[in-house]
Design a protein around this nucleic acid. Structure first.
Length: 273
DNA sequence: AAGGATCTCAACCGCACGGAC
DNA sequence: GGTCCGTGCGGTTGAGATCCT
């Protein structure tokens, strides 16, 4: 049995939004708030599907959006975050107030990627793709980037490196070079699972994708403000699992990342007892 | 000025997830 | 445990803008 379509495609508009549609959407959300996107179009008198309305609101109409060019600071931050998080645009967007994941993704694909390539850095791996050319622009930043992003090459030479030591080395290196406070446990993209059982157990415990409430996302409080139940659930579960509660709670909230308290991105690299 | 090439970015699409039933 | 629904995410597309010859 197939999934039902998100909307009746025959009866919905597609393509660019008109001013009239924008106005309808804005005034509806102003008076009723966000949420229930599926039923919103009918209620707001729009011939659009709910997903389209949500996208238009989040990426374009939201009042707190910062329009205009990216600053050098934002540029730098995007590169740093991408080197740590990869194409997790929504996570990156949470660190750039007023910017949307779509905006950052587009900016990355059209500007930053090219910029890194010009510097001889692979935008996917953030490692040098050839002998670095000397350029006059932003030498300091470039040096810092090359230093942090080349840690992988060093590691490749050290095949006997244990997984734990590799993690420690990469995080220490990133931390020092990027001037970031990274007292957190995240998996480098290349981290291998020790075995299938470990992967399955972790998946079973935490699920594959984490949806966190605002409190968890921004690390507010120590779980008191948590409305998604992640904090409570994990602490409860920790008592009956092989994970220590300190491992879990420290992965949930309380880190200071880029000067902001932050939530965990992924639990897949929790220390195993 | 014309028109082809390239770039930009809003919007779409398919899929994955959590929750409800 | 299975299915459906609502939502969110990341990759891709394509129309309009801009650049180049």
């Amino acid at each position: 049995m197939g999934r039902s379509p998100c909307c009746e495609r025959d009866h919905t508009n597609k393509g660019a939004w008109t001013k009239e549609e924008d106005h309808k959407l804005i005034s509806y959300i102003k008076s009723h708030g966000e949420g229930c996107w599926r039923s919103l179009p009918a209620s707001a008198g729009l011939l659009r599907c709910g997903k389209s309305c949500r996208l238009r609101w989040i990426n374009y109409l939201r009042p707190d959006l910062k329009r205009g060019n990216f600053t050098l600071e934002e540029d730098d931050l995007i590169i740093k975050l991408h080197s740590l998080l990869g194409n997790k645009w929504s996570l990156i967007a949470t660190r750039l107030p007023g910017r949307t994941d779509n905006e950052i993704k587009n900016y990355w694909n059209t500007h930053v990627k090219r910029k890194l390539l010009r510097r001889g850095i692979d935008p996917t791996t953030h490692r040098p793709i050839k002998a670095r050319r000397e350029t006059s622009e932003s030498k300091e930043t470039e040096d810092s980037l090359v230093k942090v992003l080349s840690f992988g090459s060093d590691l490749e030479k050290e095949e006997s490196f244990g997984e734990e030591r590799r993690c420690q080395k990469s995080l220490t290196c990133q931390k020092e070079s990027l001037d970031l406070n990274l007292e957190l446990r995240i998996s480098p993209p290349w981290q291998a699972w020790q075995d299938q059982q470990q992967r399955d157990e972790t998946k079973l415990l935490f699920g594959r994708r984490k949806y966190l409430c605002s409190a968890c996302r921004f690390g507010l409080g120590n779980g008191k403000e948590c409305s998604c139940g992640n904090v409570k659930r994990q602490i409860e579960e920790s008592s009956s699992s092989s994970y220590s509660s300190s491992d879990i709670s420290s992965s949930v909230v309380g880190y200071d990342f880029l000067g902001l308290n932050t939530s965990v991105f992924d639990f897949t690299s929790l220390e195993m007892n």
